[in-house]
Design a protein around this nucleic acid. Structure first.
Lengths: 152, 152
DNA sequence: GAATTTATTTCAGCATACCGAAATATTCAG
DNA sequence: CTGAATATTTCGGTATGCTGAAATAAATTC
């Protein structure tokens, strides 16, 4: 069995490695941590209006304008007026943005797939299950921490 | 089997969840991402001089002074002159710092241990193996990315 | 169709945190 | 004991990026 201390330190190392990778991605693309989260949100939740993005990442509308300016200047996202409501501006990840991410995550993805492929189907299921549960726990703990942070 | 796209998106979600948790930790403790990494380094590599810390995290000595000022003001680290070489200042994680991290990571650790405990010994070994390999891949990809970033 | 509401942008002010260089303190070499 | 080297701090300048408020534009309500 994984002892408590072993499990903790492995988890800690994994966490550190993930964060280090993210920082390296940010440095490579020349975008801040918040910008990266915004890119992730836009990519995952599809095209988004500026206001929706502001709520999603907890910034004021004014700050979002500046952030989108940066990302647009870097060619990573695109602005377009919403045809249905022309007050709105919808923001999408630009082709270059998707390309840059592919470039950055491509090597990781390839290596991870090759590594996972060496496990049996049953083992892969165990791993996927653990990852899913870990994600749930992380999200719950993040919410709890944010709750405690806001109550001060 | 975990399909390529499934594996990718799970990995992406895990990564996002880890980063979100780290950001929540930073917000809770009131320290920046760099500060957090410094705390991690000091905690892991034992007491460290200011200069050694500067090299470790890639800041100028002047910036380290300011950072340690912040962390010390927050009660998370302590400065002490090195008895062997009184030009040096050794920095250690303060009791409050360790306590704060325990408070923050305690819930996570508990939940993770409970979750992992539900797997069989063999399954736990598979998981630990996968985590170890994933860490290796992340580190390698981080190095590769940093290498490409510096070459510009 | 005038008034109100909603969405985004602009802008001034402010806080943060970095760098580079000079200052200070201590150690080491000869 | 003097001069050079090393470790940290101090400080001025700068860049970044946020907030809050005002401005602008478009849609909705009555």
């Amino acid at each position: 069995m994984i002892s408590v201390t072993q499990g903790d330190s492995l988890g800690r190392e994994l966490s550190t490695a993930v964060v280090a990778f993210h920082e390296a991605v940010g440095a490579y693309l020349g975008v801040s941590a918040v910008d990266q989260r915004a890119l992730g949100v836009i990519g995952a939740r599809g095209p988004l209006s500026a206001g929706a993005l502001a709520k999603e990442i907890g910034l004021t509308p004014g700050a979002v304008t500046g952030m989108v300016d940066r990302l647009e200047r870097a060619g990573l996202v695109e602005r377009a007026p919403d045809p249905a409501d022309r007050r709105r501006v919808v923001i999408t990840v630009a082709a270059k943005g998707r390309g840059a991410f592919g470039e950055v995550f491509g090597g990781l993805s390839t290596a991870m797939n090759a590594m996972v492929g060496r496990y049996s189907v049953a083992e892969q299921q165990v791993i996927a299950d653990w990852v899913t549960r870990t994600i749930d726990i992380l999200r719950e703990q993040t919410r709890e921490l944010s709750r405690r942070t806001s109550k001060r």
